[in-house]
Computed example of a mutant assay.
Amino acid sequence: RITGYGAGYGGWRTIVYTLLFVVCLLAVSGFVPLWAMCVIVFAAFLICDRKVFKNVDWGLPLTFCMFFIFIGNMKRVPEFYQLARSLVGGHPLEVAVASSQVISNVPTTILLSGFCDQWRDLIIGTNLGGMGTLIASMASLISYKNVVRQYPHKKGRYLAVYSAVNVLFLAVLLTLSWIIEPSF
Score class of each variant (00 low, 15 high):
residue 182 P to R: 00
residue 112 L to S: 06
residue 95 V to M: 07
residue 1 R to C: 04
residue 25 L to N: 04
residue 83 L to Y: 05
residue 84 A to T: 15
residue 31 F to M: 07
residue 24 C to S: 09
residue 14 T to C: 12
residue 152 P to C: 00
residue 35 W to G: 13
residue 50 R to M: 01
residue 132 G to K: 01
residue 49 D to Y: 01
residue 118 Q to S: 13
residue 10 G to L: 08
residue 111 L to W: 09
residue 160 A to Q: 02
residue 150 Q to A: 06
residue 115 F to W: 10
residue 41 V to H: 07
residue 70 F to C: 08
residue 184 F to P: 14
residue 46 L to G: 05
residue 150 Q to F: 06
residue 34 L to C: 13
residue 116 C to W: 09
residue 148 V to N: 00
residue 75 K to S: 04
residue 5 Y to F: 14
residue 137 S to T: 15
residue 90 G to L: 01
residue 61 P to Q: 00
residue 66 M to E: 13
residue 165 V to A: 04
residue 20 L to N: 01
residue 147 V to M: 01
residue 138 M to S: 15
residue 177 S to D: 09
residue 100 S to G: 15
residue 164 A to V: 14
residue 38 C to T: 15
residue 68 F to E: 12
residue 13 R to H: 08
residue 89 G to S: 07
residue 90 G to D: 09
residue 57 D to I: 14
residue 99 S to Y: 13
residue 133 T to E: 02
residue 120 R to H: 13
residue 55 N to M: 10
residue 173 L to M: 02
residue 106 V to T: 14
residue 78 P to V: 01
residue 31 F to P: 13
residue 42 F to N: 12
residue 1 R to K: 05
residue 112 L to T: 06
residue 179 I to T: 05
residue 45 F to Y: 11
residue 31 F to I: 04
residue 126 T to E: 03
residue 25 L to K: 02
residue 34 L to M: 10
residue 113 S to M: 06
residue 178 W to K: 07
residue 178 W to I: 08
residue 169 F to N: 06
residue 50 R to S: 05
residue 100 S to Q: 10
residue 71 I to K: 03
residue 124 I to N: 02
residue 144 Y to T: 05
residue 17 Y to N: 08
residue 177 S to G: 06
residue 55 N to A: 13
residue 54 K to D: 13
residue 80 F to E: 02
residue 83 L to A: 05
residue 73 N to L: 02
residue 77 V to T: 04
residue 144 Y to I: 04
residue 89 G to P: 10
residue 20 L to K: 01
residue 109 T to Y: 14
residue 120 R to Q: 11
residue 14 T to P: 12
residue 85 R to M: 08
residue 35 W to D: 15
residue 172 V to C: 03
residue 120 R to P: 14
residue 129 G to A: 09
residue 65 C to L: 14
residue 95 V to L: 05
residue 131 M to H: 03
residue 163 S to R: 00
residue 86 S to N: 05
residue 46 L to Y: 08
residue 173 L to H: 02
residue 76 R to G: 11
residue 56 V to I: 15
residue 49 D to S: 02
residue 66 M to Q: 10
residue 31 F to L: 09
residue 107 P to T: 11
residue 85 R to G: 09
